[in-house]
Amino acid sequence: MSLRARLAVLLVAVVVLGGIAVGSVLRASDRAARRDRQQGGAPPVTSGHVALTEAGPARQSRLVFRNMAWGPHRDELVSVPAADPSGPRTASEVHCLRFYAAAGTGVCLQGVQGVVQDTYQAVVLDAELREQRHYPLTGIPTRARVSPSGHLVAWTVFLSGDSYAGGTFSTRTSILDVRTWTLQNTLEDYRVIKDGNTYRSADVNFWGVTFADDDHFYATLATGGKTYLVHGDIAARTVTTLRENVECPSLSPDGTRLAFKKRVPGLPADAPWRLYVLDLPSLRETPLAEQRSIDDQAVWLDDRTLAYALPGDYGADMWTVPADGTGTPLRLMTAALAPAVVG
Rank of each mutant, 00 (worst) to 15 (best):
P268R: 15
S47Q: 15
L301G: 09
T46L: 11
A323E: 13
Y164L: 14
R274Q: 12
F260I: 08
V12G: 14
L283F: 07
E76W: 02
T53R: 13
S92A: 08
S282M: 09
A289G: 07
R37K: 10
T182S: 04
T142V: 12
G327K: 10
S29L: 04
M1D: 03
R59T: 12
Q117F: 05
Q297F: 01
E76T: 02
L306P: 12
D214F: 14
Q39D: 11
G327A: 12
W273I: 06
A289V: 04
P44H: 07
R98P: 09
S29Y: 00
R98F: 05
A336I: 13
G315I: 05
A102G: 01
R4L: 05
T305V: 05
H151A: 08
P329G: 02
T256K: 15
T328F: 09
F206N: 11
S163I: 03
L229P: 07
V80I: 01
G161P: 00
A338H: 13
A336S: 13
Y100A: 14
V115S: 14
H134G: 02
A32N: 09
R284A: 12
A235C: 02
L97N: 10
S79E: 11
G327L: 04
V341T: 13
V123Y: 01
L330E: 15
A58I: 03
L330W: 14
T320W: 04
R191S: 13
G255R: 15
S201W: 04
E128D: 11
D203C: 12
D254P: 02
A222F: 13
A340W: 07
C96P: 10
